[in-house]
Write a protein that binds this DNA or RNA. Structure first.
Lengths: 190, 190
DNA sequence: ACCTGAACACCGTTCAAGT
DNA sequence: ACCTGAACACCGTTCAAGT
């Protein structure tokens, strides 16, 4: 059978979850697909493009928020994004790089922008605020996820999955999120 | 003469400014110092530690803010950090990685925390807010700096330095910063 | 104490040639 | 159209041996 882009991305995520980004090399990935390394370059122009596809797949579960107040929608989207990132090892770093390289097709910024507009913020300001919020979510989750990696040497006997959400990390995330929303609310009143 | 850590970090920053992070390899760095690659490993245990030292050097110009209102202090610190990052190519990425690896000796979070405390926020909340703000500053500047790199192919005939601050980028930065400060202000009133 | 030379075990990417 | 084999030009890191 033939190799599809979907297969390649799936295998990449499998390596990611089991061994981490440091071990996600083109050669290793090719081996796990029983294929020569060069074969990957027929499907993707380079590693960066492959990682962008991985980032898109990671963000796939993020969808439009449920009906509700704009601030509740922001919270829902941000939480969903964080959950999607925590579901795969080093995902925050990969998605962050994909955004920086502008190779992702993700719509998270658009989702944030729409909810902020619903709150009565101008299109221009909503876009700026949306990217600011994304910086926060990515920054927080990268930090959180790198801490998980460091702690994994100290082998904690906790949940079944190695990728669990620490309750205090969730609290810290929620705190920064509400700080942001309070700022947006203040901007609306002014 | 002998090689000092300071020399190594200085040479690393010189390569950074001229060729970027992608070209900052241990071998290239050693060559620029007229030394064998192995010599670097007498001064630093590994590349990560070297980059952490580079990050510390980049943040050296960041110092305590002048006397004034807490919100003005926050703005001053954040602006100084951004300026320090924009002064060297790919600096935001390096500093971000250094923070994630917890190898930096930088005191920026402490500076942010102190000013927030001066505004009347509890120690606990001030620390959380300080890291949130740092995530924003780093996220924004990484994005901004990666854009500079992409544009440099389109060769813009602008300032003398290739590392200039785009006025609109500064506006965007200030917007997110004031959003954050508005959130902090709302928290104080509550 | 500080550095060299040479090696080890890798990388991403390209490309003629095969099917 | 899709993939292999083999090469090119690199990496970070280690370590005996030198001074």
């Amino acid at each position: 059978v033939q190799l599809t882009k979907r297969d390649v991305v799936g295998a990449a995520i499998a390596i990611l979850d089991e061994y981490g980004l440091g071990d996600l090399t083109m050669r290793r990935l090719a081996t796990s697909l029983n294929v020569a390394a060069g074969a990957l370059y027929w499907h993707f122009p380079n590693k960066q493009a492959l990682l962008a596809a991985v980032a898109d797949r990671i963000l796939e579960p993020v969808s439009a928020p449920s009906e509700g107040a704009w601030d509740e929608q922001l919270t829902e989207i941000a939480t969903t994004v964080r959950d999607a990132l925590l579901a795969h090892r080093d995902a925050a770093e990969i998605v962050s790089a994909a955004f920086a390289s502008r190779m992702t097709t993700s719509t998270v910024v658009a989702l944030f922008t729409r909810s902020l507009r619903a709150g009565g913020i101008s299109e221009h300001d909503a876009e700026l605020a949306a990217t600011s919020l994304l910086y926060y979510v990515l920054g927080h989750t990268i930090d959180e996820q790198s801490r998980i990696q460091m702690d994994s040497s100290g082998a904690l006997a906790d949940s079944a999955s190695p990728l669990f959400e620490s309750p205090t990390a969730t609290d810290r995330f929620t705190f920064g999120l509400s700080l942001f929303i309070a700022g947006a609310r203040a901007m609306i009143k002014a």
